[in-house]
Each structure stands twice: as C-alpha cells, then as structure tokens.
Amino acid sequence: MFGEYSLGDLGAIFAMQGFAGLILFSVYVLMALGLAIIFGQMGVINMAHGEFMILGAYMTYLCSGFFQAHLPALFPAYFFVAMALAFVAAGALGMLVEWGLIRHLYKRPLDTLLATWGLSLILQQAYRSIFGAREVGVELPSWMMGSVQATDAIEIPINGLFVMAVTVLITLVVAGLLFASRYGKQVRAVMQNRVMAGAVGIDTGRVDCLTFGLGCGIAGIAGSAFTMIGSTGPTSGQLYIVDTFLIVVFGGAASLMGTIASAFSISQTQSTLEFFLSGSTAKVITLLAVVGILMLRPQGLFTLKVRR
C-alpha cells in the first residue's frame, strides 16, 4: 500500500495525518484520562463515560448558540467558557451519579458495568428528548479556523494545536493533583484500601465523590474538543467508549503515562492507516492489533510489577 509513494511523500503524509490526528488524540487522551481515574484508580467500569463526554459537547453547542445570539462581541472567546461549563456540568452530573448509584456498588465492579450501561441508555434518551435526534454542530470562532503552513507539504490545523495545548495543561493539572497534592494522596489511599483509609480518618465518601466527578468532568472537556471533529448526536458517545476502554487497558490501567502513550499510539495508527485504507478497515486493524497485543501482554504497556 506504500508502493506508489516516494519516501519524502510518505514522511509528509505521516506528518500531515499525525497533525490531523491531533484532535482525535486529544479527545482520546482526555476521555482516557477521565476513565483512567475512574476505572484505573476506582475500579468502576463506567459505561456511561461516552455520555458524559456528549454532555460536554452539548454544553459547547449551547454556549456557541448563546454567544452567537446574545454576546457576539465575546464570541471569539466562547470556547474557554464552553470548556469550563462542560467540565462543571459533566462533573456535577458525575458527582450526582456517584452519590445515587456508584457508591452502593464498590464491592461489585462487574455490576457497575450493568448499572452505568443503564445510565447511559437513560442519558441517551434524555439527550434525544431535549436536543432532538438530529446531530448538531458548533460554529468555531474564526481565529481557530485555518492552519499553520509548516513546510510546503505539511499543514498544522490551529484548532488541533489549541486542543493539544489544553490537553497538555489538563494532563499536567491532573498529574499534579493526583501525585503531588494532599487530595491525590487521599485518593490513592482510598483506592488501595477503602476501609483502612477510612480508619485513618479520610472521608472516603467525599474522596470517591470528588474523584468520580473529576473523571466525568474531564470527559466533559473531551466532549468540547470532540465538537471540532464530529457532529454531536445522542449516541455519538457510544462509538468512543470501546476505544477508550481499550486505551486505558492497553496503557496499563493504573498508569497515567501509559494512558497517554497508548492514546497516542492508537489514535496515530488509526489516523495514519485511514489515509491508506478505508476508515472501517483502519479501525479494525487498529483494534485487532490492540487486542492481539493485550492477549500477549494482558497487563498493558506500562505497569507496576504486581503478582496477581
């Protein structure tokens, strides 16, 4: 399949597709980051994660409409507001869900899967009732359109760079929060042993609630970024949930570095293959490769040595 291209062309193609895949990569990283916190740290299989992402996407859509209609002067800056709102909305819903549903199920991880699947069905139908079954798109401010011409053959889309920057920032904040703050220490203590953490005076209920909310909030931001690569419909989130779980498992569930590395490799493989093959074949090959590697190395790419 590479035969008809020269080496220079191939380099440019890889670079182009690489940069074109930036947004997909960012969406994957943000989704997977949220899931790595929820699944990797808390052990909850959140099948509704895609729906939290879509909530963020719908918030962005609402913001875009609101700013266009009422505050056209501030329209160029609306995306920042949208991202913040997406985080708050998805996070708040996440905390509500944790309080109402998840906290009863920490001892039965497989059952969280069924319960959150039920939740995802309810959310999908709720979106359909509120926003309609048709897919919606958002208007980007003009400064985010267009691209930077790096060389003759390579263009870098500006919105890709912007989302990338946001992703890096959020990743750093999350890493700092989990590994360098008092809260992060509490999170890790609770995840290792909930009873003992409670015994030394950590309010485990509060930590669980905040952590779940944080994971869902990040998914909301992923939804904001998602609006740039696809239109938002009630069931758009479901398409991403399998990929996201694979990324988290592939990277090694407890490792943030692994999550990023696997999100990068999966999104880039897919986006590069898409240039040469049809979209569905690219996806099949990527997923097959991931499942194949996981069968050989079930603990994922990066992981602590633990005897199970």
Partner: peptide, 8 residues
Amino acid sequence: LFGLGALF
C-alpha cells in the same frame, strides 16, 4: 430506553 435503563 428510559425503562430499559431503569431496569438495568
């Protein structure tokens, strides 16, 4: 879908 979700 609400019913099915609630059932889960």
